[in-house]
Design a binder for these strands. Structure first.
Lengths: 304, 304
DNA sequence: TAGTTTATTTTGTCTAGGACAAATAGATAT
DNA sequence: ATATCTATTTGTCCTAGACAAAATAAACTA
């Protein structure tokens, strides 16, 4: 009765699950010989699970700066070795508490971790919690997943929960009557909203009024929002970005279209690697300099 | 100096902002003569803003059940008329409070609305708030946007804020020691997480332990999650869906792969229109029957 | 040695037009 | 009204070629 359980994924599913474009998948096949999916009777590509997993590893390595030409045709084992090497290079100042949590997650003690996160937020306060716990935890989980220590769904789970916690903490800062109003969002293509939530929390802790539009606001909508809500600052968050080209293009576009009275602020992992950013845009390279930036903006605005 | 401000969008941007696939955009052009983008020097399509807006209207009408063949070649005016007609057909039991809020949003009294939402949640409690305020408000905002009464970014803003509120309300139900654990998520392709948040709140109010994985969990990950977290129930949320075909296919796949001990629950606007749903899957057609369903599941589990 | 410019390779995204099966609508019969 | 069959509609996939932007390597300059 069990007529061939579907062990393969279509190109659309693979594209969505890995974040690699459909065209890219096809052209890799042509150029590097991987992936090499089976074919359905229509000739459609059917990707077995092993290839899907391997593509996920590749996608992650690309985010870390590897180049397709050198890794796409690597065997899974080679990919693992490479991931391990990159990990040891990066990890310097890691928080023992974070390591402990990752370990606990690997052993299935999920609820325990979620619980202790709440405690830490209370104990350490929003700023320290964000810098020392939330941000490094997310990074570590990424690594742990690449090494096979953790299932990917754990990343989803933790991300979601952490998001809730940050939200809640944000809302605890009641609306202080303040002159500074900051609009928050990400540009189309940037689906990660965690950075946004962390920034929002930090800003609120500084007494700023924040409006969060969520992720992927189309440019024309963003212009409308700036006119309709008229914030003094528009803050954009970038995580690891696949296509640096278009990001700069969009930043230019914004710089042209957004009212000149609005200060443009960009931050996140992804932005610090870019060069030739339009002058008008202020870049915040690390989370813990956000407070300084805000004070600087306040000064600038008070002068006028 | 202002060298031709970019008033056009690439096919990728249009696809992302409208939710219409790239291939679909191209084939519409061929078949229906719309959109008819300008071309760059490479021959790439460049969509002017008017066409982008028109595509957004079309996309929305499709979600409401219209067919491409009959609406894609319509003029913007005709589209507006059609949207208006559909609106009057649907709106029966609308809440006056909701109408009032939509009006206020149109006049730019954003903060006021956000404030009053908080008050209503406190006053009415989670259940009533979800049924009578949150759900209809989101629907109404969709309509108001289609009629040009509201900017789209307002929808983002409200969605985001409402999400925060629901989260917060959810977290207020402290972890009751309960035998029932429910895993929540959406399938790949379904990016709307609001339904999920509403369901989570309602479930918590019933004393259920919930785990929310967020949106778009890949199928293989979902299987892993069911094994790793072993919930008694897996609940999936569907909004208006573009491709009903694949949804049923994925449901079948799940039905095959998820351990038989797990009860599958599906709900949301999108699911009620479908027929030929696998037997194993329980369908919750309306939010306010969720409580009943939960009690029924509890009974079933207690028998065993 | 270190920084800047130029050439070369790599890489993602686009295009065209054809194909096909799943979904829907319309017609017919129970 | 409900079910069955046929015709049309519709989204997604295919191939194979093209091209510009990004990244790298090479050459040159201070």
């Amino acid at each position: 009765m069990n007529k061939h359980v579907n062990l393969t994924s279509s190109i659309e599913e693979v594209s969505r699950d890995t974040g690699i474009g459909k065209d890219t998948l096809r052209v890799w096949e042509r150029r590097y010989g991987f992936p090499q999916p089976r074919r359905g009777k229509k000739g459609e590509r059917l990707y077995p699970k092993e290839q899907l997993d391997r593509l996920r590893s590749i996608s992650r390595l690309l985010d870390q700066g590897c180049r397709p030409g050198s890794i796409v045709s690597m065997s899974p084992e080679q990919l693992d070795i490479l991931a391990e090497q990159l990990k040891t290079v990066k990890d310097h100042r890691d928080n023992p508490k974070v390591d402990e949590m990752v370990g606990a997650l690997g052993e299935g003690r999920t609820q325990e971790v979620l619980q202790s996160l709440r405690v830490m937020l209370k104990q350490q306060g929003p700023q320290l919690f964000t810098y020392d716990i939330a941000a490094p935890l997310l990074e570590q989980i990424g690594h742990a997943w690449a090494n096979g220590q953790l299932s990917i769904y754990m990343e989803h789970l933790i991300t979601n929960h952490l998001g809730n916690m940050l939200n809640e903490a944000t809302n605890e800062f009641s609306h202080i009557e303040d002159d500074l109003k900051i609009l928050l969002t990400t540009l189309p293509g940037e689906r990660h909203g965690m950075g946004l939530l962390m920034v929002e929390l930090l800003l609120r802790a500084e007494g700023v009024e924040t409006i969060n539009l969520g992720v992927e606001t189309p440019v024309d909508q963003l212009v409308e929002a700036c006119i309709g809500l008229n914030p003094q600052v528009l803050a954009l968050s970038f995580s690891a970005i696949h296509k640096r080209a278009s990001v700069i293009a969009v930043l230019r576009e914004l710089s042209d279209k957004i009212p000149v009275s609005v200060i443009l602020l960009a931050g996140g992992e992804g932005i610090s690697k870019l060069r030739s950013i339009p002058e008008r845009i202020r870049v915040v390279k690390k989370l813990d300099t956000l407070g300084i930036e805000v004070r600087s903006i306040r000064q600038q605005l008070n002068k006028t």
